[in-house]
Design a protein around this nucleic acid. Structure first.
Length: 157
DNA sequence: GCCAACGTTGGC
DNA sequence: GCCAACGTTGGC
């Protein structure tokens, strides 16, 4: 079982949006960055991921989702009407992939980016999160088991 | 809304 | 292969 972190702008797609989706399940589409895509491809069914709200008033980890399947071609790249359209990707040679995710839970309380930065000293395992590196724009990233459990612990306090 | 940091593109 | 220009991300 691997752990991940998925960024989403809540004004576009929030944890609540996922919770309210049929079966609490939806596609994680629109990833258009090679490093992030490679992380999607490395996911396996049953992995878990933090749901992170970015580009909002209080950036924070707000919940946990489950990865429902391994990566498959992101069809929104083939659709000229999609905001995620990429003419360089076609069904014969798909360039972008996505997974399905399912809502598991909201954290007992959100763990904010500000708090994560403050906790870096006491919890060095958290400092390894790419999220906390300056100027990090990666929207799909791995989370070490140590960091995962440290953050879950924070959310209980 | 600002702007620093970053990834991508394309001329050379 | 270099690197300037550009568009995007995302914290603040």
């Amino acid at each position: 079982m691997n752990y991940w972190l998925l960024k989403s702008e809540p004004s576009v797609f929030s944890l609540d949006d996922l919770r309210r989706a049929p079966g609490g399940r939806d596609h994680w589409d629109g990833v258009r960055n090679y490093q992030a895509r490679n992380h999607l491809r490395a996911m396996t069914e049953g992995d878990q991921a933090f749901f992170y709200h970015s580009n909002c008033a209080t950036p924070a980890i707000v919940g946990i989702v489950e990865i429902c399947c391994s990566a498959y071609p992101d069809h929104t790249a083939f659709d000229p009407h999609s905001p995620y359209y990429d003419p360089k990707s076609d069904p014969e040679h798909p360039r972008w992939h996505m997974v399905d995710v399912r809502f598991l839970q909201a954290l007992p309380r959100p763990v904010t980016l500000q708090e994560l930065k403050q906790q870096m000293r006491q919890h060095p395992e958290i400092a390894n999160l790419p999220l906390l590196k300056r100027g990090c724009r990666l929207s799909v990233m791995p989370v070490s088991p140590q960091a995962w459990h440290a953050i879950l612990q924070l959310a209980q306090e």
